[in-house]
Simulated assay, not measured.
Amino acid sequence: MTSACGFHLRGDYLLPDEVHEISLTSFDQYSSLTRDVQKQLRMNGIRQVAPTTVTPSLDLISESLNERTLSLYQNSRAAEKELTYNVSYSVLIPGHDLKTYTTTVNRNYLDNPLTALAKSVERDMIEEEMRAQAAEQILRQMARLKADDAPVETSDVITHDDETESKVTTKEVIKSMSTTAETTQ
């Protein structure tokens, strides 16, 4: 009964069938982000294979960590900071277009200059958590490829509007049906 309601365990992303094996390339094969993405691929049952023209590929393009001061102490030192972690990556499934995405993770933390050593360890832990969360977001986005990147096919659906006929793609028909259902609710 639980399978009929759509319930899935957290982290089970129902990736498309085309992505049961994937080639992973990265700007740095030994980075923490690459290891986190490899771990997420293994957890979701995706085999990592060598790049070919017939296998889907995931390319980690870049990562960046930016810092912004949110508040100051009375002596003009930074009290609270915001960390922003950005990852750019692209996904190529054979027969579909290359899609480039960016995922962003934000975190705030208090920076106390009196406990500099403890705060540097805390910051390292926050950065690790942000990388792991970005890797999860990459897999979540890949799960959406099933709906977002369906190949466009022209079907024989013909619409009649004021005596004019036009051919419509299957994707457009489904999109119009879903928007009609949303507006009626």
Rank of each mutant, 00 (worst) to 15 (best):
S62D: 04
G45T: 08
L41W: 04
L60V: 05
I61C: 08
E63F: 02
P51W: 07
Y30K: 09
S23A: 15
T25D: 04
V54E: 13
S26N: 02
N66D: 14
L33E: 00
T55F: 06
I61Q: 11
P56K: 03
Q29N: 14
Y30M: 06
R42M: 10
V19T: 08
S31D: 08
L65W: 07
S62C: 01
I22A: 03
E67Q: 14
T55W: 02
Y30A: 09
S62T: 08
I46S: 02
S26K: 00
L65F: 13
Q40M: 13
P51A: 13
Q38F: 11
T25R: 08
V19N: 00
S62R: 05
T55M: 02
S64F: 11
E63A: 04
I22Q: 01
T34Q: 05
D36I: 00
P56C: 12
L41A: 11
M43N: 11
S23G: 12
L24Q: 10
S26G: 08
R42H: 13
R47E: 11
D59R: 06
G45D: 07
E18Y: 12
E67Y: 15
S62E: 03
R35Q: 14
S57K: 06
V19G: 00
H20E: 10
L65E: 09
I61L: 15
E67M: 10
F27V: 03
Y30D: 09
S64C: 07
V37N: 02
L60F: 10
Q48E: 10
E18C: 07
L41Y: 09
K39I: 06
I22S: 01
E21M: 11
R47P: 00
F27C: 02
D36L: 08
R42A: 15
S31A: 09
I46L: 07
T34M: 05
Q29G: 09
S26P: 03
A50G: 02
N66S: 13
R42D: 08
T52W: 09
S32E: 05
D59F: 06
S32R: 01
G45E: 04
E21R: 07
R47V: 04
S23T: 09
M43E: 14
S23K: 05
M43Q: 12
S32I: 00
D28I: 01
N66F: 14
Q48V: 14
L65I: 14
S64A: 15
Q38N: 11
M43H: 04
I22E: 00
D36P: 00
S31P: 04
I46N: 00
T25C: 07
Y30F: 15
D36Y: 13
Q29W: 06
V54D: 13
E21I: 01
L41S: 06
V19Y: 04
T55D: 01
L58C: 10
S32T: 06
F27A: 02
L33M: 15
N44G: 09
E67T: 14
E18W: 08
V37H: 04
D28L: 03
L65K: 12
K39Q: 14
T52D: 13
G45N: 11
R35H: 15
L24E: 07
L24A: 11
S62N: 08
L60M: 07
R47Q: 12
L33S: 03
Q48A: 01
D59Y: 05
V54N: 12
H20N: 13
L24M: 12
K39F: 15
K39G: 08
F27G: 02
Q40D: 03
D28W: 05
T53L: 08
T34D: 02
R47L: 13
I61W: 07
